[in-house]
Simulated scan of single mutants.
Amino acid sequence: MKKTLLAVVTSSLFAASANAAVVYDKDGQQLEVTGRIEYDAGQMGFKDSTPTEVNNFGGDGSARLGVNGKWATGYNDVALIGKADWQLNAEHDSAFSSSDANTDTINSRNVYAGADFGNGIQATVGQQDSAYIELKDVTDTFNYFDGINEDQFSSSGRWADSYKVTYAADGWDLRTSIGFSDANKDPDATATYYKNEYSAAAGYTFTIDDVQSLKAVLAYQAATQHTATDDNLTDAQYALGLGYTYDAFYLASTYGQRKHDAADYKDDIWTATASYKVLPEVTVYTNYEIVDPHNAAGKVVETSASGADGDFYVFGTEYAFTPKAKAYAEYKLNQTTGYDDQYVVGLQYNF
């Protein structure tokens, strides 16, 4: 086998695998194991009986385990790739809600396969992040409370039955994906579901000097939606994000709009974040997010700006014991009238 092919295959599996442990690396085949153990405690969720009142102090633990694989094909720089990871939710997944059905269950996160063509291009199929996650990553940089509103389609940003193509080279990060909902295989005539989803994102990083850089991201996603009374309605979201790095300082913002054809209303979504690494081990940060509804006269009154995630600030700090282990504390200041503030302290270990 050519040395250049071996170098491509064994140099790095994925950019996101910084915490992975390589357990096998031979003859162009590489296998990595990834994982995370996390425990959070505080007043994070709201009561079932009184949704505006925060729960008493409590804890919530979770663990992740996954594998990444890459296999050289012997054809130029093409390699087959795959990823699978799962999360075990100990206690309650949704912050102590007694109605949560995910207690002590294992849920799949990413399960996909594809090919790396060795020139910055990858093509994958399965359950995986949508292209829109590139926009969300601009401001979703912390631990618990931020990153809630940037993606209005999915809190996780992962789509099942999705096909994605990416190109990442020379400062560019281009992604496109399409997903087909499982619900469309045996739809309930009265249900509301996405028949398919599609998204695209384009990002470019400008390197200003040794300590300064600016990344710009433009993203769009849309879905064909079925409701009990209509079919093939469009639900769409677009946004622009900017992230500026100056040495230990990071400042970023995203702004966009979501348009709901089914209910005939619009939301403006704006997020902003800033962080500063005070010491190599200590980072302080703040975050602001708002979902601002705009309705024409006589249209449906939109309510997504209400609740704990309609308008809020986050203040936090983290301490890195090692590059893979950290402790953090965050306080969420809810600006929606009547909603209690929340806080969390947590420990996280990645491998």
Rank of each mutant, 00 (worst) to 15 (best):
T192I: 09
Y250C: 02
A16E: 13
A202C: 10
K299T: 15
L214F: 11
T337L: 06
T245M: 07
A84C: 07
S199Q: 09
G126A: 08
G45D: 04
A189F: 07
K136C: 03
V165D: 01
F145K: 01
F46L: 09
D173S: 13
D210P: 01
K3I: 10
N68I: 01
E318A: 09
A296C: 04
V23G: 09
N76K: 15
P51F: 06
A305W: 03
L214Y: 06
I106V: 15
Q212L: 10
S181V: 04
F46I: 04
D116R: 00
D151H: 06
Q212D: 13
P293H: 11
Q128I: 07
N102A: 11
N287V: 02
N196F: 07
Q29H: 12
G157S: 09
M44N: 03
Q127A: 13
D129I: 00
F315R: 04
L65S: 05
F249S: 12
F57L: 13
W270T: 11
F249N: 08
V278P: 03
D48H: 06
V217M: 05
I208W: 09
N107Q: 15
Q335P: 01
L240H: 05
D170T: 05
V67E: 05
D209F: 11
A262L: 06
D311N: 15
L65C: 07
V211H: 07
G58D: 15
Y112H: 10
S62L: 14
G120Y: 00
G316Y: 03
N89T: 12
Y349F: 14
P323M: 10
S97W: 02
V344S: 01
T254M: 03
E91A: 12
Q152L: 12
A168F: 02
K195T: 12
A272M: 14
A202N: 02
V165G: 03
A90D: 13
Y276C: 07
M44Q: 09
K26V: 11
I290A: 15
D173H: 10
A16H: 10
G203I: 00
G298K: 11
Y198A: 03
K259Q: 14
G61D: 09
L65W: 11
G346T: 03
A263K: 10
I121F: 10
D27M: 10
E53F: 04
S199T: 08
T166W: 00
A248K: 13
Q29K: 12
T10K: 10
N184P: 01
F249Q: 08
A305T: 05
D93G: 11
D140V: 00
N196L: 05
D311Q: 06
E197I: 08
T229V: 13
A15E: 15
N89M: 06
Y163R: 04
